[in-house]
Simulated assay, not measured.
Amino acid sequence: MRPAGEVRQALLDAALALTTPERSPTQLELAMHAQVGFKAARATVQNMVRSRALVIVRLREVDYRPRPVAEYCPASRVRLTNVPKCELPRVFAAWATSMV
């Protein structure tokens, strides 16, 4: 496996620096803090989400876009955020067990 590139490492460092339990950075905030281009940040963040280095934890309303934007958190810090846990995996796990 190849080592992480400069843009990926800068975005991961920015995510670690900007993530708090109440709020996580958006893609634009990551790019601005890491001082990388917006196109490079967009492609790299998508790749990092696909490889599970970053996780989308919630959506946030912003004034520069009519739709909510995703907040990204490093996978290592997901437990530290105040994100409500999803009950769907528990439902499916309980559904598959026998009731007898």
Rank of each mutant, 00 (worst) to 15 (best):
Q9N: 06
R52A: 11
C86R: 13
A15L: 07
P89D: 02
R90Q: 15
C73Q: 00
A34I: 00
P84F: 05
M99P: 12
S98P: 14
V45T: 05
N47W: 03
Q35W: 00
S24D: 05
I56N: 04
L28A: 12
L28V: 15
V55K: 07
E61I: 13
T97Y: 07
P74Q: 01
A10G: 04
T20I: 09
M99T: 14
Q27A: 15
R2M: 14
E87T: 13
R2N: 10
L80N: 11
P89F: 06
M1T: 10
V45G: 01
E22A: 14
M32I: 09
R8T: 13
S98R: 14
M48C: 10
N82A: 14
A53S: 14
R90T: 12
N47L: 14
S98A: 15
D63A: 12
A70F: 08
S98T: 13
V91E: 12
R2V: 14
R2A: 14
M32D: 15
R23G: 04
E6I: 08
P21K: 03
C86I: 08
V57N: 15
A14R: 00
D63H: 13
R79D: 15
C73M: 09
P89C: 07
E87I: 14
V78W: 07
W95P: 04
R58A: 14
L28P: 01
V36T: 04
Y64D: 13
E6P: 09
V78S: 02
A94W: 10
L18I: 03
E71S: 04
T81V: 13
P66T: 05
Y72R: 02
T20K: 09
P66W: 07
R58E: 11
A4Y: 10
R23N: 07
V36W: 02
V49A: 08
A10Y: 01
N47P: 01
V62P: 02
Q46E: 11
P21Y: 06
R65L: 10
R65P: 00
R50V: 08
A14S: 00
M32G: 06
R2P: 15
C73P: 04
A43G: 13
E6G: 10
A93V: 07
E87P: 08
H33W: 03
G37C: 01
T81E: 06
E71R: 04
R60T: 12
L54Q: 03
E61M: 11
L12Y: 01
L54S: 03
R77W: 07
Y64R: 12
A70D: 06
L12T: 02
Y72S: 05
V100E: 14
V7C: 06
T20A: 09
V100P: 14
H33Y: 09
A53I: 07
V69F: 03
L18S: 01
V100I: 11
P25I: 06
R79W: 08
E61R: 15
R79C: 10
R23W: 07
R8F: 04
E29W: 00
V62E: 05
R77V: 10
